[in-house]
């Protein structure tokens, strides 16, 4: 396969072999597995007229899922930003027993299949579960309510903020805090005026990653959500429901909305990461 001139390397780096083979293979595989199938979504949805498309993606039941999916994801991202920062801070700055184990288990949501997480969380938060039975007498129902969706989305988002903030915290020179302290700043002032601005891009990146992941999440949510239309139904589930009713075009229309959102988030995350690299870059 011949490679477009766009992908020609500059001459000086041609010393190493295999460029055309490696890049050609990459492009073919990428196109077959990712690009062409994704294009199918947009092309299929194009069989709908604009008004038909709009009718599908703005029907009340679908809009209710957006509200839940995006609202719960935003909230879960925010919760993860606060507690993720605390967890990263504790892992970097404090010594305590079991730290190595906890550090390793932070990645559990990446490694544990979502279906397993889903049934485990349901078992915990159901009325007879370990946590649910404590909350029930207080009048708080978690499982099979929108609150359950939130719990599942917090779970799957934990590693994102921790793992984006942790390396930045580790690389932070203690000199910055020493300078602030020698200038008379107290610990809180040092945190808000010196540390937080440096950590902010990483925190936002972690938040955006957790948020984007949460919006598309399916496996861990459907067990605990109860999936009641208009109340605890998430957007990915609507796609499945429409598919089960053989409404391929309807499913595709909703998928387009989600994909467009994903692309916007991807762009935002790339910009955030560039900003983060700039702010924490060592340009002495």
């Amino acid at each position: 396969m011949s490679v477009a001139p766009f992908f020609n390397p500059t001459r000086q780096t041609r010393v190493l072999p295999g460029f055309h083979l490696a890049l050609g293979y990459t492009l073919v595989y990428l196109s077959l597995i990712v690009l062409i199938p994704l294009a199918a979504v947009f092309i299929t949805s194009a069989t709908l007229s604009w008004s038909e498309f709009w009718a599908v993606v703005s029907s009340p039941r679908v809009v209710a899922t957006y509200k839940l999916s995006f609202g719960a994801s935003l909230l879960a991202g925010a919760i993860n930003t606060v507690f993720g920062l605390m967890l990263a801070w504790a892992l970097v700055r404090y010594s305590f027993p079991g730290k190595k184990l906890i550090d390793a288990l932070v990645d559990l949501p990446f490694a544990l299949p979502t279906a397993v997480a889903g049934i485990a969380l349901t078992a915990l938060y159901a009325g007879n579960g370990w946590i649910g039975s404590l909350l029930e007498p207080l009048g708080i129902k978690v499982a099979f309510t929108p609150l359950g969706v939130l719990v599942a989305l917090v779970f799957i988002g934990v590693p994102f903020v921790v793992r984006t903030v942790q390396p930045i915290l580790e690389d932070l020179e203690t000199e910055l805090e020493e300078a602030a302290a020698s200038l008379g700043a107290n610990r809180w002032q040092t945190f808000t005026r010196v540390l937080l601005p440096v950590l902010l891009p990483a925190l936002l990146t972690g938040f955006a990653l957790a948020f984007a992941r949460a919006v598309g999440e399916y496996g861990s949510v459907i067990f605990i959500a109860g999936n009641i239309p208009m109340i605890s139904e998430i957007t990915p589930l609507i796609i499945i429901t429409k598919l089960e009713q053989y409404d391929y075009v309807g499913a595709t229309a909703v998928a387009v909305v989600m994909l467009v959102f994903s692309f916007i988030m991807l762009l935002a995350i790339n910009l955030l990461q560039a900003w983060s690299a700039k702010r924490t870059g060592r340009d002495r």
């Binding site: 000199e175 602030a180 008379g184 700043a185 005026r193």
Partner: peptide, 30 residues
């Protein structure tokens, strides 16, 4: 914080996200 010593670091330890003005003003603002 309370010793009132001025400390100048080998690698300056300037606050990257603040302007020169804000860096110098930091000790007064806190």
């Amino acid at each position: 914080r309370q010793r009132r010593v001025g400390f100048v670091f080998q690698h300056y330890a300037l606050f990257r996200h603040m302007t020169v003005f804000e860096n110098v003003a930091f000790g007064l603002r806190v």
